[in-house]
Structure formats: structure tokens, C-alpha cells
Design a protein around this nucleic acid. Structure first.
Length: 438
RNA sequence: GUGGGUAUAGCUCAGUUGGUUAGAGCGCCAGAUUGUGGCUCUGGAGGCCGUCGGUUCGAAUCCGACUAUCCACCCCA
């Protein structure tokens, strides 16, 4: 029973009373990145499982235990996307976008799926906004992408701190991982169980461990930044210099280790301290080997993703303003069948002009219709009855002050004295009134 | 996957040491002279007290399991 009336665990409904916030957010995001040349890409909800194994990484938690994977009726292994980068790159490669002038800039707004235990800021179906900038290896690309996030957050009224790190290229990272293994092996027995395991597979994750013992041991661990090769060091310095030049404030956090395998060099997180434990609201970085690894040309790339649910939570916590929803323009009430038909016709005239108009579809009394009009926040109302039909004239009432203006029922919308014209004039009056007191 | 909290009306919550027909506020519906909203007043609808089992003469109340939900770990956006 309850299975019919309750959504699956970790899913969320956005109800009619809330959706305007999402619409505002999504619009703002796409509009802002458009100023930087990013255009929307739309990709499938599911992909071949292998795509995520190869890009996100076989050893990651996301691939190992969080993916919604199933076999379709054709025997293919299919996975609901756990993130947006893999599908976006696959699409860019498949359709030869990388043969065009570089860089390729794509932005997406999508839902993603991860089988995790839900908590604040974490659900099984969640929504991401992200961008991918493909083809540039220059530090200026890193800086542009990061700056764009700052720009967007400013637009949205969000405060978050930026944390930055470099995890090097495969060459210098290998040396670093070796050094880490040596360091932690000395105290192997004191590490927590998961970290003992990590020691072999992905020693960098030990730095991320929250267990007090591991953290304490990690205090003296070698730092990636000390192992960066010449090229990676230079790149990181340039990124920082660019950010400084653009007056972006950030802190270097040598402990940022992304959980997805494809990252190289620059990695960053935007963190909010107002929304609980799941505090990363935007994360991204460079992935220079990934396109080639997926069968494309040897081109570098950089991108980020942000969780819409977390962004919304942060906005609410920051007291960010959402534009008010547009209210109903006019309610055309009626009593009796003939008047009801006329009301529907007038309502339709207003709608064709682009106004939200309503008439009775519930068979309510006039009083109840007025109450409903009030609830809708209708700016104007009309009541049609037999006498209005006989005289061919009705009154448009401005709900705010009760003032009325007559209009002719049979006038065509373009004619002076028609409902449409009278509504237009009344709006103009209001605007003029609001302006002249200044 | 691990831990802790919670589960009563559409929403937010009361509910005395177990004791008859389970309450409030908001919301919804209908009235307060005949065809006009907001404020006020009156009335009404709406609950298998998360599910199953146990203790008891008697359970919303005590116990257990399950489920859901929230928070945290983990992981990540």
C-alpha cells in the first residue's frame, strides 16, 4: 500500500509551490556561464557501465558500491549516471566536437544517481549543474573556470570558501604515492582498517580519513605539493597568480583528494559551513588524461559540478532572495451558465495576451470565487451575471483598493474599452503611480 | 554498510503515572439577509496514533522486530 503513496528512498519531489526556486536557479546558472561561452549539452540518463568504470575509476566507492547498474533486455550492462563528466566527454568524442575550434565549452543540468544512505544534502537521485572545458592545458583555463563559479555564487547571493590543491600529473603522483606508502607503512598497525586497505590501493585517500588516529598520523605525512614535478609546480603557480590577479580569495588545502580517479593537477572545492556535514557545494578540477583514456584525442580538460540541492540549501541559509512568483492577473468570476461561458471567453482573451487569468471551474458561489481570487493574489477581478450580459457592460475591480473600471463585454480585444485594453491601462496607471512619488 | 534521534489530521505539534467518543493552531469547505475577497465570529470535513507482534482487564502511551524519516560516520555534489 504505502509503496504506492510513498516515493522511493532518497528521492525528493519538487512541489508546485517550490519549483520557481529551481527554475530561477537553473536559469541563473545557464545564463551566467553563457557569458563565458558555455552552451548547454543534454546527454542520456544512462550509459554503458564500462564508461563509468573507466572514467570514475574501478577502485572508487562510487563505482564499487554506489551505482545503479542493471542489465537491459538486450543483455547490455547499463548504469544510471552517477555524475555528468563521463557522459559529456563520451558525447564530445562520439560526435567529433573536439575536431572543432578549441576549447569546447559545454554546460549541463542533470539528475544523477548514487545508492547511498540519505542524509542532509545527500539523496539517491540528486541534481547537478556542471561545465566541462575541453582542449586547453593552460592555467588561464583553470582560473577562468574557477572565477566563473565565484561570479555565479555572487549572482546567487551565496557565500562559500574556495579551497585549492594540486594533485600533480601521473608521473609526479606516482613518486608521491610511493613516499606516502613508505611513511604510513611505518605505522601501519595503528591505522584504521579501511586505511590499511587504502595503503595499497590509493594511499592518498588516507589523508582524507576522519578517524582521529589516522589524522594524527597524517599530520606529519609528506605533502603532494612538495612532490610536484617542475611542470606541475609551474602550472599551479600560474593558476594561483591568475586567481590573485582576479582577486579571488582561496586557501590551499593540501588534503583535498578527489574521490574520482580522473583528476590531475588542479583540484578545488567550494565549501559552505551553513548546511551540515555535506558541505561541499561545488567541486572540480583538471582531468588531463581522461579524454584519451576514453578513446578520444589526447586533449586536456577541466570542469566542475555543483549539487543543486546543496546550492538551494546554502541560498536559504544565506537568506538569498528568490524573485517573487508572478501572481494571477485577473479572476473572471461568474454566476449562471451563460455568464460562465462568457467568463471563459474573456479569460481566454487575457491568456492570449500573455496574462495569467482564471475563471471558475469548480461551480463555486460568487463569494467563494472572490475568496479564491484573493488566494491567487489576483490583481483584478470581474463578476459576470445576468445583468452584465443584458447591459453588455461589466466592472473590472482592482483588488488592492476596490476601485472599478467599466469595460464592454463584446468589444474585441484590440478595441478601446475591451477587457484587455482596460487591464493594460490599469497596469500602466499602477506603474505610473509607483514611479511618480519618488 | 555503521551509529544515534524521531514516527499522532494536508502542515506544525499537544496528549498527564497505561483508563471511555484522540486534541490545538494553520490550511481546506460552508455559513454570518438576497450577486463580491482580505479582518472577525460560528459550524463542518479530515486520523487503523508508521506496520506487525508481545505485556495488560484495558495500549497513541510500556516492550520487541520491521519499515520510513532525520542527523552523523563513510562517501561525495
Amino acid at each position: 500500500m504505502a509503496i504506492l503513496t510513498k516515493g522511493p528512498r532518497g528521492t525528493q519531489d519538487v512541489l508546485p509551490g517550490e519549483s520557481y526556486k529551481w527554475q530561477y536557479l537553473e536559469k541563473k546558472m545557464m545564463e551566467t556561464v553563457k557569458l563565458y561561452g558555455f552552451r548547454e549539452i543534454r546527454i542520456p540518463t544512462f550509459e554503458h557501465t564500462e564508461l563509468f568504470n573507466r572514467s570514475v575509476g574501478d577502485t572508487t566507492d562510487v563505482v564499487q558500491k554506489e551505482m545503479y547498474t542493471f542489465e537491459d533486455k538486450g543483455g547490455r550492462s547499463i548504469t544510471l549516471r552517477p555524475e555528468g563528466t563521463a557522459g559529456t566527454l563520451r558525447s564530445a568524442i562520439e560526435h567529433g566536437l573536439l575536431g572543432d575550434a578549441l576549447p569546447v565549452k559545454a554546460a549541463y543540468l542533470l539528475s544523477a544517481f548514487r545508492y547511498e544512505k540519505p542524509q542532509a544534502g545527500r539523496q539517491r537521485e540528486f541534481h547537478q549543474f556542471g561545465v566541462e572545458m575541453l582542449g586547453s592545458a593552460a592555467a588561464s583555463a583553470d582560473a577562468e573556470v574557477i572565477f566563473m563559479v565565484c561570479h555565479l555564487f555572487q549572482e546567487l547571493g551565496i557565500k562559500a570558501r574556495l579551497e585549492l590543491n594540486s594533485i600533480g600529473c601521473p608521473a609526479c603522483r606516482a613518486k608521491y604515492q610511493e613516499a606516502l606508502r613508505n611513511y604510513f607503512s611505518a605505522r601501519r598497525e595503528d591505522l584504521c582498517d579501511t586505511c590499511k586497505d587504502r595503503l595499497e590501493r590509493n594511499p592518498m585517500r588516507l589523508l582524507d580519513c576522519k578517524s582521529p588516529v589516522c589524522q594524527e598520523i597524517g599530520q606529519g605525512a609528506p605533502m603532494m605539493l612538495d612532490f610536484l614535478c617542475e611542470e606541475c609546480t609551474a602550472h599551479f603557480e600560474q593558476v594561483k597568480a591568475r586567481l590573485n590577479a582576479m582577486e579571488v580569495s582561496y586557501t590551499i588545502n593540501p588534503r583535498i583528494v578527489r574521490g574520482l580517479d580522473y583528476y590531475t593537477k588542479t583540484v578545488f572545492e567550494f565549501v559552505s559551513d551553513q548546511i551540515g556535514a555535506q558541505s561541499t557545494i561545488c567541486a572540480g578540477g583538471r582531468y588531463d588524461g581522461l579524454i584519451e583514456q576514453l578513446g578520444g584525442p589526447a586533449l586536456p580538460g577541466i570542469g566542475f559540478a555543483m549539487g543543486l540541492e546543496r546550492i538551494l540549501m546554502t541560498m536559504e541559509a544565506c537568506g538569498a532572495a528568490f524573485p517573487e512568483e508572478r501572481k494571477c492577473m485577473a479572476y473572471i468570476g461568474s454566476m449562471g451558465e451563460a455568464a460562465g461561458a462568457k467568463a471563459a471567453q474573456l479569460t481566454q482573451q487575457l491568456r492570449k495576451e500573455g496574462f495569467w487569468a482564471e475563471c471558475d471551474t469548480m461551480g463555486r458561489s460568487v463569494k467563494a470565487q472572490m475568496k479564491f481570487a484573493n488566494k491567487l493574489g489576483a490583481r483584478f477581478s470581474v463578476i459576470l451575471g445576468d445583468s452584465e450580459l443584458e447591459q453588455g457592460v461589466a466592472k473590472l475591480k482592482r483588488m488592492a483598493d476596490g476601485s472599478v473600471t467599466e469595460f464592454r463585454l463584446e468589444a474585441s480585444p484590440q478595441e478601446p474599452g475591451s477587457l484587455v485594453k482596460v487591464v493594460y491601462d490599469s497596469c500602466l496607471e499602477e506603474v505610473a503611480g509607483a514611479l511618480k512619488t519618488e
